[in-house]
Structure formats: structure tokens, C-alpha cells
Computed example of a mutant assay.
Amino acid sequence: MTDLVAPRPIAWVSSVSDDGRRNLAPFSYYQAVCSRPPMVVFSVAWWPDGRMKDTLANVLATREVVINHVTSAHAEAMNATSAPFPPETSEWEACGIAAEPAAVVAPPRVAGALACLECKLVHALPLGGGAPGKPSATLVVAEVVHFAVASELLRRDARGRLLPIDPGQLQSIGRLGGIAYTRTTDRFELLRPEAPGSKASD
């Protein structure tokens, strides 16, 4: 399935436990699902022995999370944070990743990330069956309450409306099957079609 459902965006998720321990981990079951209000989802698998992963435990305890955008420049650091560190080890220190305060939530942002989505938990939905009595994964539905975007990505038209972000400047990477990743360096455009007989919208 993960070979076929690709490329997948990567949520580099920052969270904090209820006693202040910071966590940073990547998840490639990640997508935008609602515009009003802006909402995203990411899925956190449980450990085979039925333990909850630190990210999920933190999100359930504090109901806050930051999703940091991953560029090519951050690929190695992002991958390093996927190692199975024990709960008492912070990926930030272990992997040498600089943090900066978020604007409206407690978990920090990755310093230098081109975009960060500061979020509040809306739903946590258990999925599937793993260890006895435990789910296989939990789908986290979160509302974005603050967007932090690098100024060089933001452009406006003559009327002051935001223009689409240039994918080349965004430098996204995506997850493929196995240990493979891809960059958004090769792309094409398709105009959205109009239904026969309909009037073009403004």
C-alpha cells in the first residue's frame, strides 16, 4: 500500500509531554482535509507490543502539536528523528536540531523550517487492531490555529491577494515506498476544466 500511495507528504511533528519533555518525529500518513477551518490529519502507528508512541501520548495529554515542513535541506535531520529513542531522550538534542518558540502553542518549531503549522487536537480516532485490546494506529485530526511561513514564500497580486506558493521555493520532499524519497523538482501544470456550457468563474 505504501508503495502505491505515493508520494506522501511528511509531517515533522513537534510535541511536548505534560511534564515538559520535547519530542520530534516524522509521519508520512499526513494530509490536509478541510479548509474552513483549516484542518490536517496524520496517523501514528502503535508499537507492536501495544505501547503508544511518544508523539501520540503527548498530543493526547496536551492537545497541541506543531507540524514542521520538510525540505531537502532537512531530509537527513528528519530521518534521524525517526529512530526509536526512549521517552526520556529528546530528539532535538540527540539529533542536534535547533528549536524556536511557537507563536500560540507550547511545542517548539524547527528553526529554519520554511513553514510550520501550529495546531490544536480536534479528534483522535483509533484504527485497526494491533496488540490485544490496542489499535494499530490512531488518526489525529488537528485544526491549524497559526501558520508560520517564511516571508520569501509569500507573494501577492496587485489586489493584495496571496498567490500560490512557488513549489520550487518550497523545496518539498515526499515519501515513497521502502526507504525511498522524492523531491518536487519535476512538475507540470493542468488547468482546471470547465463543465460543457458553464461560465468561467472569476
Results as ranks from 00 to 15, higher is better:
M1Y: 14
T2A: 12
L4E: 10
V5S: 03
V5F: 13
A6R: 04
P7C: 02
R8N: 03
R8C: 05
A11E: 03
W12V: 06
V13E: 01
S14A: 15
S15Y: 00
S17R: 10
D19E: 14
N23K: 10
L24I: 15
A25Y: 10
A25V: 14
Y29L: 14
Y29E: 09
Q31G: 13
R36N: 14
F42Q: 02
M52R: 15
A57F: 03
N58S: 00
V59G: 00
L60Q: 11
A61H: 06
T62H: 00
R63N: 10
E64G: 04
E64V: 11
E64C: 05
V66T: 07
V66H: 01
S72K: 13
S72M: 12
A73T: 06
A75S: 14
A75P: 01
A77V: 01
A80P: 00
S82C: 04
A83L: 11
P84R: 04
P86T: 12
E88T: 12
T89P: 01
S90W: 05
S90P: 00
E91Y: 03
I97Q: 05
A98S: 14
A99Y: 04
E100P: 06
P101N: 13
A102L: 09
A103T: 15
A106N: 05
P107Q: 05
P108M: 09
P108W: 07
V110C: 03
A111Q: 14
G112Y: 12
G112A: 15
A113N: 04
A115V: 07
C116P: 09
E118P: 09
E118Q: 08
K120N: 07
K120S: 08
L121T: 05
L121Q: 01
V122L: 08
L125I: 15
P126R: 02
G128M: 04
G129M: 08
G130N: 06
G130W: 08
A131R: 02
P132Y: 00
P132R: 01
G133M: 02
K134P: 00
K134E: 08
S136K: 08
T138I: 05
L139G: 01
V140H: 00
V141D: 00
E143A: 10
V145T: 11
V149A: 12
A150C: 10
A150Q: 15
A150Y: 10
S151L: 02
L153F: 13
L154P: 12
L154F: 11
R155Y: 12
R155L: 15
R156G: 11
A158N: 05
A158G: 10
G160D: 09
G160F: 10
P167K: 09
G168Y: 03
Q169F: 08
S172Q: 09
G174Y: 01
R175W: 09
G178E: 08
Y181V: 05
Y181H: 14
Y181M: 04
Y181A: 06
T182K: 10
T182V: 14
R183M: 10
F188Y: 13
E189W: 09
L190G: 00
L190Y: 07
R192N: 02
P193Y: 06
E194I: 04
A195D: 06
P196N: 00
P196R: 01
P196G: 01
P196S: 01
S198E: 11
A200K: 13
